[in-house]
């Protein structure tokens, strides 16, 4: 209860002076250059930038897939920039729901098994897991496609399964990396509408895209260029 209160009073994501330096041969590359960013609960932030701007690096760091070279990263009241790999895996599992560009579903598993997977690694008992997965699939409107495999689903449906997987564990943050990148315009619009709806239901969303049309749907736009971050005016409320 106490941690819940602290989470609501503090920002969900608080990044201070974050650097990520790659060394390639003799040269050093500042993929992230003194980046600071705050995301509050219920926010819908779009991070936009051209390729090579460092947005993938930022998303990897926010998603705990990579660790920064220096700086602070507070996620849900916890400083995580110096944590070990196993601890990061646990944080990814509990705090972050990933929505990838290429869906990244496991092709050999059915929709429900894919959605259950994060709960398996969390150690949720089978019965409860099943129930939560069905609930999440219901939320994305795929209650009748529970036992289909990814190949038996359309691109839009696959992305909705991926969203259901992100939702199943009820994480505080949804991290979407070019969620419409692999979809045609029409299904892309549908999926974006769905993500907006999730935001209006109270989910905090961080969206990474290079498409201004997509980013305008967010409430807040952050621009990244050469590893530096610039806050922009909010999109349509």
């Amino acid at each position: 209860m106490a941690s819940k209160q602290r989470a609501s009073s503090e920002a969900l994501i608080r990044i201070r002076n974050l650097n990520k330096i790659y060394r390639m041969g003799g040269e050093t590359l500042n993929a992230l250059d003194n980046v600071s960013l705050t995301v509050n609960e219920g926010d819908f932030v779009a991070i936009v930038g051209p390729s090579g701007s460092g947005k993938s690096t930022l998303m990897n760091v926010i998603g705990c897939l990579d660790t920064p070279s220096s700086g602070e990263y507070w996620l849900d009241g916890e400083e995580i920039s110096r944590l070990r790999e196993n601890k990061l895996a646990e944080i990814r599992n509990r705090k972050i729901g990933f929505i990838f560009q290429g869906f990244n579903l496991l092709t050999k598993l059915t929709a429900i098994e894919n959605v259950e997977l994060p709960l398996v690694y969390r150690g949720v008992p089978a019965k409860q897991r099943r129930q939560q997965a069905i609930e999440a699939l219901g939320k994305v409107g795929l209650a009748d496609r529970v036992h289909h495999r990814p190949v038996e689903l359309s691109g839009g449906q696959q992305q909705r399964v991926a969203i259901a997987r992100a939702l199943a564990g009820n994480p505080p943050i949804l991290l979407a990396d070019e969620p419409t990148g692999a979809l045609d315009t029409k299904t892309g619009v549908e999926v974006m509408g769905f993500i907006r709806e999730l935001n209006s239901l109270g989910h905090t969303i961080v969206l990474i895209t290079h498409d201004p049309g997509i980013s305008r749907q967010a409430r807040r736009i952050v621009r990244i260029q050469d590893g530096r971050l610039n806050e922009e005016e909010a999109g349509p409320e």
Binding site: E85, A89, E90, N104, L117, P118, Y121
Partner: peptide
């Protein structure tokens, strides 16, 4: 990679 991203530990 997918399994690890959604929270599978090394173990």
């Amino acid at each position: 990679g997918i399994r690890k991203a959604i929270g599978a530990k090394k173990r």
